[in-house]
Computed example of a mutant assay.
Amino acid sequence: MFEIASLIVVNLFVAAIIGFIAGYLIGRPKNAKIDSIENPNYTNANESKLDTKAKPAINPVFRKNAQLDYKPLVLSSPKPIGKDNLQKIKGINSVIENNLNNLGIYHFEQIAKWSNKNCDWIEEFLHFPGCAKNNQWVEQAKILQLGKETIYSQKIENGELEAD
């Protein structure tokens, strides 16, 4: 009985070693360099010139200092009908719309549900203090989600104005 138990333990130990080796070989970066692993401050001039798209993207939520408690509802992708033109809201230009889309905000309905704390979070996230509250994004979004138009959105639609 003792012999069988010892054989099981030896087999488990061998399997663990094989598993660690296989995990290391599969999970290591393809261009891993020992210098960069041993010295975290190591920088190679050639590495800085590499395409930044090759690096995995970090969710923008985790790069900001805003409290996640007040983060508004976000979606992983727009609804099948497509995303709304958020530039119809006064104060949202193409850059802000792109940042909101990257965050997961695609529709007027999402903005219409924001609270004051959500607005504070978005303003801190975008680094534009007061932009959502001063331009009344929530109120405009409530109108636009119903299919109605604001004066500003009508001017955008008619081409009288370009988005901010």
Rank of each mutant, 00 (worst) to 15 (best):
F62T: 01
V74F: 06
N102S: 12
N65T: 15
D120E: 15
L100H: 07
I34N: 03
E149V: 12
D69V: 09
I105W: 05
T52V: 12
K155H: 10
G159A: 05
T150W: 09
K53R: 11
K117W: 02
S36Y: 12
F62H: 04
G159V: 03
A57M: 04
E123R: 02
S36G: 12
G104H: 03
P60E: 01
T150N: 05
N93R: 11
K148S: 12
G91Y: 03
K142Y: 02
K133R: 15
A141G: 04
N41R: 15
N98H: 11
G27E: 01
N41E: 15
G23Q: 08
P129V: 07
L25Y: 01
F13K: 04
S153Y: 06
A45I: 14
G104N: 06
P40I: 15
Y42H: 15
K64C: 12
K79Q: 12
I21T: 10
T43R: 15
L100P: 02
E157N: 14
A15M: 11
G23Y: 14
S6I: 12
P72R: 08
N98W: 04
K142M: 07
I143P: 01
G82D: 03
T52S: 08
K64D: 08
E124M: 08
F128K: 09
D164E: 11
I92Y: 08
S94G: 10
D84W: 06
D35S: 15
F13R: 03
I105G: 01
I96N: 05
N135F: 07
L75Q: 12
M1F: 07
V95Y: 09
N118W: 09
T52E: 11
V138I: 14
D164Q: 09
C119Y: 01
I18P: 01
N118F: 08
S77L: 08
I105D: 03
L68G: 04
N46A: 13
K113V: 06
I81Y: 08
P129R: 10
E123S: 10
N44C: 15
T52P: 05
W114E: 03
N135E: 01
N116I: 12
N93W: 10
V74P: 02
K148C: 04
E47P: 00
Q140L: 10
I58S: 00
G130P: 02
K55F: 14
Y152R: 10
V61N: 04
L25H: 00
A22G: 07
K113P: 01
D84K: 06
A112N: 01
W114T: 05
E149Y: 08
L100V: 06
L68N: 11
L103R: 06
T150Q: 09
A112F: 01
E38R: 13
I26M: 07
I151N: 11
L86I: 04
G27C: 04
L103P: 02
K142G: 02
E160P: 00
W121T: 11
A32I: 15
V14T: 11
I122D: 00
I122A: 11
A132M: 07
A112S: 12
K83G: 08
K148P: 00
K88G: 06
F62D: 04
K64G: 05
E3Q: 11
L103H: 03
Y42S: 13
E47C: 04
L126Y: 04
I151C: 02
W114H: 02
D84F: 05
